[in-house]
């Protein structure tokens, strides 16, 4: 990426403001569906920041995997478990949120102090820009070959494990009786009627 300094700075400011606002929306929004869509905004902003950091391959991977796979997976999970229930009010919930906010702000101040005061040993070499994908491929097939192969095993294990965990526990052998057929009862979740949506 050969962009002028002003363009870089303006892009950085716009992307970071978008990312922080969307991340706060993910955490603080009352509607979980809005949170999921704002999470997609966070992922897209981070992909833009990767482009600013001379890493176009990782930016494309971020877009494909996070926005295309994980965000859609989260949306499907929300659709499967969304009952619209109102959570019971808790005692001392405000106190918990206040203490957590103080702890997180303290953590941020600590990290910021560390970042600002540490003398970073900045590299003087020109970073490789668009040739990064060749270097990444060389890393993958020489010195990071074992983690690369282990990642495929991990993905296979996650695939099988997710299917085993999320499948139905039992199947209805016989078709349901005709009087329950009008109610459209689901065989695995007998407590919830399909047609009963709250207005």
């Amino acid at each position: 990426m050969n962009l002028a300094e002003g363009v870089q700075l303006v892009s950085f400011i716009v992307l970071s403001v978008t990312m922080i606002v969307a991340a706060l929306g993910v955490v603080l929004s009352a509607n979980i569906v809005y949170s999921a869509f704002l999470l997609g905004g966070v992922f897209i902003s981070i992909s833009g920041l990767y482009l600013l950091l001379n890493a176009s391959f990782v930016a494309a991977a971020q877009l494909l995997i996070y926005v295309g796979a994980i965000n859609v997976l989260i949306l499907f999970a929300i659709m499967l478990v969304n009952k619209g229930e109102a959570f019971k009010p808790l005692k001392y919930l405000w106190l918990r949120q206040l203490v957590t906010a103080f702890v997180c702000a303290g953590l941020f101040v600590l990290l910021s102090t560390m970042v600002v005061t540490t003398p970073w040993d900045l590299s003087l070499a020109v970073p490789i820009g668009d040739e990064a994908i060749y270097v990444i491929a060389q890393h993958f097939f020489t010195d990071y070959l074992l983690p690369f192969e282990l990642a495929s095993v991990l993905l296979l294990m996650a695939l099988i494990g997710a299917i085993v965990l999320a499948r139905r526990e039992f199947f209805a052998d016989a078709p349901p009786a005709p009087e329950t057929k009008e109610d459209l009862l689901l065989p695995e979740r007998p407590r919830e009627l399909v047609g009963s949506t709250k207005e």
Binding site: A55, Y66, A77, A125, H139, L155, L159, A162, L165, A166
Partner: peptide, 26 residues
């Protein structure tokens, strides 16, 4: 900036995050 090992680590972290999301949602 020359031997970009951080980008390789990021790709691995993205892979593990995808596996974690699938198993966590299951």
């Amino acid at each position: 900036g020359v031997t970009i090992k951080g980008q390789v680590f990021t790709v691995f972290v993205i892979t593990v995050a995808a596996a974690e999301a699938a198993v966590g949602l299951a």
